[in-house]
Design a binder for these strands. Structure first.
Lengths: 215, 215
DNA sequence: GAATGTGAAGGTTTTCACAGCA
DNA sequence: TGCTGTGAAAACCTTCACATTC
Protein backbone atom coordinates (compact mmCIF):
# COMPACT_ATOMS: atom_id res chain seq x y z
CA UNK A 1 0.00 0.00 0.00
CA UNK A 2 1.69 3.10 -1.25
CA UNK A 3 1.27 5.89 1.25
CA UNK A 4 3.00 8.82 -0.36
CA UNK A 5 0.81 9.96 -3.20
CA UNK A 6 2.28 9.04 -6.53
CA UNK A 7 1.51 11.04 -9.64
CA UNK A 8 -0.22 9.49 -12.58
CA UNK A 9 2.67 10.38 -14.82
CA UNK A 10 5.04 8.41 -12.66
CA UNK A 11 2.80 5.35 -12.90
CA UNK A 12 2.55 5.68 -16.65
CA UNK A 13 6.30 5.90 -16.86
CA UNK A 14 6.62 2.73 -14.81
CA UNK A 15 4.81 1.04 -17.70
CA UNK A 16 7.45 2.39 -20.03
CA UNK A 17 10.28 1.21 -17.80
CA UNK A 18 8.70 -2.20 -17.64
CA UNK A 19 8.52 -2.38 -21.40
CA UNK A 20 12.11 -1.24 -21.83
CA UNK A 21 13.35 -3.68 -19.20
CA UNK A 22 11.57 -6.56 -20.93
CA UNK A 23 13.50 -5.73 -24.07
CA UNK A 24 16.78 -5.28 -22.23
CA UNK A 25 16.27 -8.68 -20.66
CA UNK A 26 15.82 -10.25 -24.09
CA UNK A 27 19.01 -8.51 -25.19
CA UNK A 28 20.77 -10.15 -22.26
CA UNK A 29 21.63 -7.02 -20.37
CA UNK A 30 22.54 -7.69 -16.76
CA UNK A 31 22.36 -4.10 -15.59
CA UNK A 32 21.18 -0.82 -17.03
CA UNK A 33 21.87 2.79 -16.10
CA UNK A 34 19.22 5.44 -15.68
CA UNK A 35 20.84 7.10 -18.65
CA UNK A 36 20.27 4.15 -20.97
CA UNK A 37 16.78 3.54 -19.67
CA UNK A 38 15.96 7.21 -20.20
CA UNK A 39 17.34 7.18 -23.71
CA UNK A 40 15.22 4.22 -24.68
CA UNK A 41 12.00 5.89 -23.58
CA UNK A 42 12.92 9.48 -24.42
CA UNK A 43 13.06 10.68 -20.84
CA UNK A 44 15.79 12.14 -18.66
CA UNK A 45 18.02 10.10 -16.36
CA UNK A 46 16.98 12.21 -13.39
CA UNK A 47 13.37 11.48 -14.13
CA UNK A 48 14.00 7.75 -14.15
CA UNK A 49 15.88 7.84 -10.87
CA UNK A 50 13.33 10.04 -9.16
CA UNK A 51 10.42 7.87 -10.30
CA UNK A 52 12.05 4.72 -9.01
CA UNK A 53 13.10 6.37 -5.77
CA UNK A 54 9.43 6.73 -4.79
CA UNK A 55 9.20 2.99 -4.46
CA UNK A 56 12.56 2.02 -2.99
CA UNK A 57 16.23 1.88 -3.85
CA UNK A 58 16.82 -0.58 -6.61
CA UNK A 59 20.15 0.45 -8.04
CA UNK A 60 23.81 0.23 -7.22
CA UNK A 61 25.91 3.37 -7.36
CA UNK A 62 28.48 3.18 -10.06
CA UNK A 63 26.74 0.25 -11.70
CA UNK A 64 23.12 0.91 -12.44
CA UNK A 65 20.00 -1.22 -11.99
CA UNK A 66 19.83 -5.01 -12.24
CA UNK A 67 17.57 -5.60 -15.25
CA UNK A 68 15.75 -8.78 -14.23
CA UNK A 69 15.35 -7.71 -10.64
CA UNK A 70 14.06 -4.23 -11.45
CA UNK A 71 11.65 -5.58 -14.01
CA UNK A 72 10.26 -7.89 -11.39
CA UNK A 73 9.99 -5.11 -8.83
CA UNK A 74 8.10 -2.89 -11.23
CA UNK A 75 5.72 -5.66 -12.20
CA UNK A 76 5.01 -6.10 -8.53
CA UNK A 77 4.45 -2.37 -8.01
CA UNK A 78 2.10 -2.23 -10.99
CA UNK A 79 0.32 -5.36 -9.84
CA UNK A 80 0.95 -7.18 -13.11
CA UNK A 81 2.82 -10.05 -11.47
CA UNK A 82 -0.51 -11.82 -11.22
CA UNK A 83 -3.53 -12.62 -13.39
CA UNK A 84 -6.46 -10.22 -13.58
CA UNK A 85 -9.87 -11.51 -14.55
CA UNK A 86 -11.18 -9.14 -17.20
CA UNK A 87 -14.54 -8.97 -18.95
CA UNK A 88 -15.07 -7.21 -22.23
CA UNK A 89 -18.42 -5.68 -23.10
CA UNK A 90 -19.15 -5.04 -26.75
CA UNK A 91 -17.71 -7.48 -29.28
CA UNK A 92 -17.74 -5.13 -32.25
CA UNK A 93 -14.83 -3.72 -34.21
CA UNK A 94 -12.73 -2.54 -31.35
CA UNK A 95 -13.92 -5.22 -28.96
CA UNK A 96 -12.90 -8.16 -31.09
CA UNK A 97 -9.55 -6.57 -31.82
CA UNK A 98 -8.94 -6.32 -28.09
CA UNK A 99 -9.76 -9.99 -27.51
CA UNK A 100 -6.92 -10.94 -29.81
CA UNK A 101 -4.55 -8.27 -28.53
CA UNK A 102 -1.57 -10.28 -27.28
CA UNK A 103 -0.14 -7.51 -25.14
CA UNK A 104 -3.01 -7.73 -22.64
CA UNK A 105 -2.55 -11.43 -21.98
CA UNK A 106 1.20 -10.97 -21.74
CA UNK A 107 0.74 -8.57 -18.87
CA UNK A 108 -1.68 -10.74 -16.98
CA UNK A 109 -4.92 -9.23 -18.21
CA UNK A 110 -6.93 -12.31 -19.07
CA UNK A 111 -10.18 -11.71 -20.89
CA UNK A 112 -12.43 -14.46 -19.57
CA UNK A 113 -15.90 -13.13 -20.39
CA UNK A 114 -17.44 -11.46 -23.43
CA UNK A 115 -20.79 -9.69 -23.57
CA UNK A 116 -22.86 -8.34 -26.42
CA UNK A 117 -26.48 -7.44 -27.09
CA UNK A 118 -26.56 -8.77 -30.64
CA UNK A 119 -28.65 -11.96 -30.76
CA UNK A 120 -26.57 -13.26 -33.65
CA UNK A 121 -23.43 -13.08 -31.55
CA UNK A 122 -24.81 -14.28 -28.23
CA UNK A 123 -24.00 -17.95 -27.65
CA UNK A 124 -21.40 -18.05 -30.38
CA UNK A 125 -17.82 -18.86 -29.67
CA UNK A 126 -15.37 -16.04 -30.21
CA UNK A 127 -11.71 -17.01 -29.88
CA UNK A 128 -12.60 -19.69 -27.37
CA UNK A 129 -15.04 -17.64 -25.31
CA UNK A 130 -18.80 -17.96 -25.57
CA UNK A 131 -20.42 -14.55 -25.87
CA UNK A 132 -22.92 -13.85 -23.10
CA UNK A 133 -26.09 -11.83 -23.29
CA UNK A 134 -25.56 -8.35 -21.95
CA UNK A 135 -28.93 -8.70 -20.24
CA UNK A 136 -27.22 -10.96 -17.70
CA UNK A 137 -24.27 -8.65 -17.23
CA UNK A 138 -24.62 -8.03 -13.52
CA UNK A 139 -25.08 -11.63 -12.38
CA UNK A 140 -22.49 -13.08 -14.74
CA UNK A 141 -19.85 -10.53 -13.76
CA UNK A 142 -20.35 -11.57 -10.15
CA UNK A 143 -20.36 -15.30 -10.87
CA UNK A 144 -17.18 -15.10 -12.91
CA UNK A 145 -15.36 -13.05 -10.27
CA UNK A 146 -14.48 -10.35 -12.74
CA UNK A 147 -12.16 -7.65 -11.43
CA UNK A 148 -11.80 -5.30 -14.39
CA UNK A 149 -14.32 -4.44 -17.11
CA UNK A 150 -13.39 -3.09 -20.51
CA UNK A 151 -16.13 -1.21 -22.33
CA UNK A 152 -16.08 -1.23 -26.13
CA UNK A 153 -19.68 -0.23 -26.72
CA UNK A 154 -21.30 2.70 -28.55
CA UNK A 155 -21.18 6.00 -26.68
CA UNK A 156 -24.96 6.16 -26.57
CA UNK A 157 -25.34 3.12 -24.31
CA UNK A 158 -22.08 3.34 -22.40
CA UNK A 159 -23.62 5.01 -19.35
CA UNK A 160 -26.37 2.40 -18.89
CA UNK A 161 -23.90 -0.42 -19.11
CA UNK A 162 -21.58 1.35 -16.72
CA UNK A 163 -24.38 1.60 -14.18
CA UNK A 164 -24.87 -2.17 -14.45
CA UNK A 165 -21.18 -2.80 -14.11
CA UNK A 166 -20.99 -0.66 -11.00
CA UNK A 167 -23.99 -2.47 -9.55
CA UNK A 168 -22.13 -5.72 -10.05
CA UNK A 169 -19.50 -4.46 -7.64
CA UNK A 170 -16.75 -3.93 -10.21
CA UNK A 171 -14.17 -1.38 -9.05
CA UNK A 172 -12.14 -0.82 -12.22
CA UNK A 173 -13.38 0.16 -15.66
CA UNK A 174 -11.54 0.93 -18.88
CA UNK A 175 -13.77 2.83 -21.29
CA UNK A 176 -13.17 2.99 -25.03
CA UNK A 177 -16.37 4.89 -25.80
CA UNK A 178 -15.81 8.57 -26.58
CA UNK A 179 -17.99 9.82 -23.75
CA UNK A 180 -17.43 10.75 -20.14
CA UNK A 181 -19.05 8.37 -17.68
CA UNK A 182 -20.52 9.05 -14.27
CA UNK A 183 -19.37 6.63 -11.60
CA UNK A 184 -19.25 6.70 -7.78
CA UNK A 185 -16.02 8.06 -6.31
CA UNK A 186 -14.71 4.66 -5.23
CA UNK A 187 -14.60 3.32 -8.79
CA UNK A 188 -11.42 3.53 -10.85
CA UNK A 189 -12.39 4.72 -14.30
CA UNK A 190 -9.97 5.29 -17.13
CA UNK A 191 -10.53 6.34 -20.71
CA UNK A 192 -8.88 5.22 -23.90
CA UNK A 193 -9.62 7.99 -26.34
CA UNK A 194 -8.14 6.96 -29.63
CA UNK A 195 -9.09 10.15 -31.47
CA UNK A 196 -7.29 12.32 -28.96
CA UNK A 197 -3.80 11.55 -30.19
CA UNK A 198 -4.81 12.01 -33.81
CA UNK A 199 -6.28 15.36 -32.86
CA UNK A 200 -3.03 16.22 -31.18
CA UNK A 201 -1.17 15.41 -34.39
CA UNK A 202 -3.60 17.53 -36.34
CA UNK A 203 -3.08 20.42 -33.94
CA UNK A 204 0.69 20.03 -34.10
CA UNK A 205 0.73 20.01 -37.89
CA UNK A 206 -1.54 23.01 -38.22
CA UNK A 207 0.16 25.07 -35.53
CA UNK A 208 3.72 23.92 -35.91
CA UNK A 209 3.51 23.05 -32.29
CA UNK A 210 6.43 22.65 -29.92
CA UNK A 211 5.05 21.52 -26.58
CA UNK A 212 6.12 23.20 -23.37
CA UNK A 213 6.77 19.98 -21.59
CA UNK A 214 7.63 16.85 -23.49
CA UNK A 215 5.25 13.94 -23.41
CA UNK B 1 0.53 29.71 -35.83
CA UNK B 2 0.35 29.62 -32.07
CA UNK B 3 3.25 31.53 -30.60
CA UNK B 4 2.81 31.13 -26.88
CA UNK B 5 3.66 27.56 -26.05
CA UNK B 6 0.58 25.56 -25.24
CA UNK B 7 0.81 22.54 -22.98
CA UNK B 8 -0.13 19.12 -24.18
CA UNK B 9 -2.74 18.84 -21.46
CA UNK B 10 -4.49 21.92 -22.74
CA UNK B 11 -4.65 20.47 -26.24
CA UNK B 12 -5.99 17.19 -24.95
CA UNK B 13 -8.64 19.05 -23.02
CA UNK B 14 -9.62 20.90 -26.20
CA UNK B 15 -10.55 17.47 -27.55
CA UNK B 16 -12.78 16.99 -24.54
CA UNK B 17 -14.40 20.37 -24.95
CA UNK B 18 -15.03 19.62 -28.57
CA UNK B 19 -16.69 16.35 -27.68
CA UNK B 20 -18.84 17.97 -25.00
CA UNK B 21 -19.84 20.80 -27.29
CA UNK B 22 -20.90 18.35 -30.00
CA UNK B 23 -23.25 16.78 -27.49
CA UNK B 24 -24.51 20.12 -26.22
CA UNK B 25 -25.25 21.11 -29.78
CA UNK B 26 -27.33 17.96 -30.27
CA UNK B 27 -29.17 18.79 -27.08
CA UNK B 28 -29.98 22.21 -28.57
CA UNK B 29 -28.06 24.32 -26.11
CA UNK B 30 -27.43 27.83 -27.37
CA UNK B 31 -24.85 28.75 -24.78
CA UNK B 32 -22.90 26.96 -22.08
CA UNK B 33 -21.03 28.19 -19.03
CA UNK B 34 -17.53 27.13 -18.08
CA UNK B 35 -19.15 25.55 -15.04
CA UNK B 36 -21.38 23.26 -17.09
CA UNK B 37 -18.63 22.42 -19.54
CA UNK B 38 -16.33 21.59 -16.65
CA UNK B 39 -18.91 19.39 -14.98
CA UNK B 40 -19.41 17.37 -18.12
CA UNK B 41 -15.74 16.56 -18.48
CA UNK B 42 -14.84 16.40 -14.78
CA UNK B 43 -12.70 19.50 -14.79
CA UNK B 44 -12.87 22.86 -13.02
CA UNK B 45 -14.51 25.99 -14.46
CA UNK B 46 -11.28 27.94 -14.03
CA UNK B 47 -9.43 25.31 -16.03
CA UNK B 48 -11.89 25.58 -18.89
CA UNK B 49 -11.68 29.36 -18.97
CA UNK B 50 -7.89 29.41 -18.76
CA UNK B 51 -7.54 26.83 -21.54
CA UNK B 52 -9.79 28.75 -23.86
CA UNK B 53 -8.16 32.06 -22.99
CA UNK B 54 -4.91 30.88 -24.59
CA UNK B 55 -6.63 31.00 -27.97
CA UNK B 56 -8.85 34.03 -27.75
CA UNK B 57 -11.92 35.35 -26.01
CA UNK B 58 -14.92 33.31 -26.98
CA UNK B 59 -17.39 33.95 -24.20
CA UNK B 60 -19.73 36.66 -23.05
CA UNK B 61 -19.60 37.74 -19.41
CA UNK B 62 -22.77 36.89 -17.63
CA UNK B 63 -23.83 34.53 -20.39
CA UNK B 64 -21.26 31.91 -21.18
CA UNK B 65 -19.99 30.53 -24.48
CA UNK B 66 -22.00 30.16 -27.68
CA UNK B 67 -22.09 26.41 -28.26
CA UNK B 68 -22.04 26.21 -32.04
CA UNK B 69 -19.55 29.02 -32.40
CA UNK B 70 -17.14 27.69 -29.79
CA UNK B 71 -17.31 24.21 -31.23
CA UNK B 72 -16.38 25.62 -34.58
CA UNK B 73 -13.52 27.66 -33.12
CA UNK B 74 -12.07 24.65 -31.35
CA UNK B 75 -12.30 22.51 -34.45
CA UNK B 76 -10.37 25.20 -36.25
CA UNK B 77 -7.73 25.37 -33.50
CA UNK B 78 -7.33 21.60 -33.54
CA UNK B 79 -7.23 21.57 -37.31
CA UNK B 80 -10.11 19.15 -37.59
CA UNK B 81 -12.25 21.52 -39.66
CA UNK B 82 -10.73 19.91 -42.72
CA UNK B 83 -9.99 16.46 -44.10
CA UNK B 84 -6.70 14.75 -43.32
CA UNK B 85 -5.41 12.09 -45.66
CA UNK B 86 -4.40 9.18 -43.47
CA UNK B 87 -2.71 5.89 -44.31
CA UNK B 88 -2.87 2.85 -42.09
CA UNK B 89 -0.05 0.34 -42.06
CA UNK B 90 -0.84 -3.14 -40.78
CA UNK B 91 -4.31 -4.51 -41.44
CA UNK B 92 -4.36 -7.00 -38.58
CA UNK B 93 -6.56 -7.07 -35.51
CA UNK B 94 -6.12 -3.51 -34.41
CA UNK B 95 -5.65 -2.18 -37.91
CA UNK B 96 -8.92 -3.44 -39.31
CA UNK B 97 -10.78 -2.22 -36.24
CA UNK B 98 -9.38 1.25 -36.87
CA UNK B 99 -10.51 1.25 -40.50
CA UNK B 100 -14.09 0.84 -39.35
CA UNK B 101 -13.77 3.24 -36.42
CA UNK B 102 -16.40 5.87 -37.13
CA UNK B 103 -14.96 8.45 -34.77
CA UNK B 104 -11.91 9.01 -36.98
CA UNK B 105 -13.92 9.78 -40.10
CA UNK B 106 -16.26 12.01 -38.10
CA UNK B 107 -13.34 14.21 -37.13
CA UNK B 108 -11.93 14.45 -40.60
CA UNK B 109 -9.35 11.68 -40.43
CA UNK B 110 -9.97 9.87 -43.65
CA UNK B 111 -8.15 6.59 -44.10
CA UNK B 112 -7.44 6.47 -47.80
CA UNK B 113 -4.63 3.92 -48.01
CA UNK B 114 -3.99 0.54 -46.39
CA UNK B 115 -0.72 -1.36 -46.36
CA UNK B 116 0.19 -4.88 -45.33
CA UNK B 117 2.96 -7.38 -46.00
CA UNK B 118 0.69 -10.43 -46.11
CA UNK B 119 0.41 -11.67 -49.70
CA UNK B 120 -3.07 -13.00 -49.01
CA UNK B 121 -4.26 -9.53 -48.08
CA UNK B 122 -2.43 -7.49 -50.69
CA UNK B 123 -4.71 -6.59 -53.57
CA UNK B 124 -7.85 -7.50 -51.68
CA UNK B 125 -10.54 -4.98 -50.96
CA UNK B 126 -11.00 -4.08 -47.32
CA UNK B 127 -13.98 -1.82 -46.61
CA UNK B 128 -13.64 -0.22 -49.99
CA UNK B 129 -9.88 0.21 -49.97
CA UNK B 130 -7.50 -2.04 -51.87
CA UNK B 131 -4.65 -3.15 -49.62
CA UNK B 132 -1.24 -2.17 -50.97
CA UNK B 133 2.03 -4.02 -50.64
CA UNK B 134 4.12 -2.55 -47.86
CA UNK B 135 7.11 -2.93 -50.18
CA UNK B 136 5.81 0.10 -52.08
CA UNK B 137 5.17 2.12 -48.94
CA UNK B 138 7.42 5.05 -49.66
CA UNK B 139 6.32 5.73 -53.23
CA UNK B 140 2.64 5.12 -52.60
CA UNK B 141 2.59 7.39 -49.57
CA UNK B 142 3.99 10.16 -51.72
CA UNK B 143 1.69 9.52 -54.65
CA UNK B 144 -1.39 9.51 -52.45
CA UNK B 145 -0.39 12.74 -50.70
CA UNK B 146 -0.69 11.14 -47.29
CA UNK B 147 -0.29 13.52 -44.35
CA UNK B 148 -0.62 11.23 -41.33
CA UNK B 149 0.39 7.59 -40.95
CA UNK B 150 -1.08 5.23 -38.38
CA UNK B 151 1.07 2.25 -37.48
CA UNK B 152 -0.68 -0.92 -36.36
CA UNK B 153 2.14 -3.35 -36.97
CA UNK B 154 4.04 -5.75 -34.69
CA UNK B 155 6.58 -4.08 -32.42
CA UNK B 156 9.41 -6.03 -34.00
CA UNK B 157 9.06 -4.36 -37.40
CA UNK B 158 7.71 -0.98 -36.32
CA UNK B 159 11.07 0.77 -36.51
CA UNK B 160 11.86 -0.36 -40.07
CA UNK B 161 8.47 0.77 -41.27
CA UNK B 162 8.85 4.05 -39.45
CA UNK B 163 12.13 4.68 -41.26
CA UNK B 164 10.33 4.16 -44.56
CA UNK B 165 7.51 6.44 -43.53
CA UNK B 166 9.94 9.17 -42.56
CA UNK B 167 11.75 8.75 -45.86
CA UNK B 168 8.44 9.33 -47.61
CA UNK B 169 8.34 12.78 -46.07
CA UNK B 170 5.50 12.09 -43.63
CA UNK B 171 5.57 14.48 -40.67
CA UNK B 172 3.00 12.91 -38.34
CA UNK B 173 2.86 9.34 -37.07
CA UNK B 174 0.52 7.64 -34.65
CA UNK B 175 2.02 4.42 -33.34
CA UNK B 176 -0.01 1.61 -31.82
CA UNK B 177 2.95 -0.76 -31.45
CA UNK B 178 4.18 -1.07 -27.87
CA UNK B 179 7.67 0.14 -28.62
CA UNK B 180 9.39 3.50 -28.68
CA UNK B 181 10.39 4.66 -32.14
CA UNK B 182 13.35 6.74 -33.22
CA UNK B 183 12.42 9.60 -35.53
CA UNK B 184 14.09 12.87 -36.54
CA UNK B 185 13.18 15.85 -34.37
CA UNK B 186 10.91 17.46 -36.96
CA UNK B 187 8.50 14.51 -36.99
CA UNK B 188 5.44 14.49 -34.76
CA UNK B 189 5.20 11.07 -33.18
CA UNK B 190 2.50 9.99 -30.78
CA UNK B 191 1.85 6.69 -29.09
CA UNK B 192 -1.37 4.90 -28.34
CA UNK B 193 -0.43 2.46 -25.63
CA UNK B 194 -3.51 0.48 -24.83
CA UNK B 195 -1.93 -1.55 -22.04
CA UNK B 196 -0.95 1.56 -20.15
CA UNK B 197 -4.37 2.39 -18.84
CA UNK B 198 -5.03 -1.21 -17.84
CA UNK B 199 -1.75 -1.17 -15.97
CA UNK B 200 -2.84 1.99 -14.26
CA UNK B 201 -6.04 0.29 -13.15
CA UNK B 202 -4.03 -2.64 -11.89
CA UNK B 203 -1.77 -0.32 -9.93
CA UNK B 204 -4.73 1.55 -8.52
CA UNK B 205 -6.47 -1.61 -7.39
CA UNK B 206 -3.38 -3.08 -5.79
CA UNK B 207 -2.27 0.11 -4.09
CA UNK B 208 -5.62 1.68 -3.30
CA UNK B 209 -4.33 4.61 -5.21
CA UNK B 210 -5.57 8.16 -4.90
CA UNK B 211 -3.73 10.25 -7.48
CA UNK B 212 -2.15 13.53 -6.52
CA UNK B 213 -3.64 15.36 -9.40
CA UNK B 214 -6.79 14.19 -11.09
CA UNK B 215 -6.64 13.00 -14.67
C1' DG C 1 -26.89 38.87 -10.98
C1' DA C 2 -24.19 35.90 -13.67
C1' DA C 3 -20.26 34.46 -15.71
C1' DT C 4 -15.93 35.58 -18.30
C1' DG C 5 -10.92 36.69 -18.53
C1' DT C 6 -6.76 36.93 -16.07
C1' DG C 7 -2.86 38.29 -12.95
C1' DA C 8 -1.18 36.28 -8.89
C1' DA C 9 -0.88 32.52 -5.63
C1' DG C 10 -0.43 27.89 -4.73
C1' DG C 11 0.78 23.19 -5.94
C1' DT C 12 2.94 19.79 -8.49
C1' DT C 13 6.39 17.88 -11.45
C1' DT C 14 10.76 18.03 -13.49
C1' DT C 15 15.47 19.12 -13.56
C1' DC C 16 19.72 20.31 -11.32
C1' DA C 17 23.62 19.34 -8.92
C1' DC C 18 26.13 17.03 -5.75
C1' DA C 19 27.07 13.95 -1.73
C1' DG C 20 27.82 9.25 -1.24
C1' DC C 21 28.87 4.73 -2.47
C1' DA C 22 30.59 0.62 -5.37
C1' DT D 1 35.57 6.78 -12.07
C1' DG D 2 30.71 5.90 -12.74
C1' DC D 3 26.27 6.16 -11.43
C1' DT D 4 22.60 6.30 -7.84
C1' DG D 5 19.60 8.74 -4.55
C1' DT D 6 17.87 13.05 -3.20
C1' DG D 7 17.28 17.77 -1.28
C1' DA D 8 16.80 22.18 -3.49
C1' DA D 9 15.79 25.02 -7.42
C1' DA D 10 13.42 25.76 -11.50
C1' DA D 11 9.73 25.10 -14.52
C1' DC D 12 5.25 24.28 -15.18
C1' DC D 13 0.27 23.79 -14.44
C1' DT D 14 -3.89 24.62 -11.85
C1' DT D 15 -6.70 27.18 -8.84
C1' DC D 16 -8.04 31.41 -6.68
C1' DA D 17 -10.16 35.58 -6.53
C1' DC D 18 -11.71 39.60 -8.37
C1' DA D 19 -12.23 43.35 -11.74
C1' DT D 20 -14.97 43.57 -15.66
C1' DT D 21 -18.66 43.13 -18.72
C1' DC D 22 -23.26 41.89 -20.35
Amino acid sequence: MTRKRISESTIHRLSLYYRALSLLEKENYETVSSKELAKREKLTPAQVRKDLSFFGTFGTRGLGYPVRELKHQISSILGIDRVWRVALVGVGNIGSALVSYKEFAKQGFQIVKLFDNDQRKIGSNHKGIVISDIANLETELREANIEIVVLAVPATVAQYITDDVVRAGIKAILNFAPVNLKVPPDIYLRHENMSMELEYLSFALVNNHVPKRNS
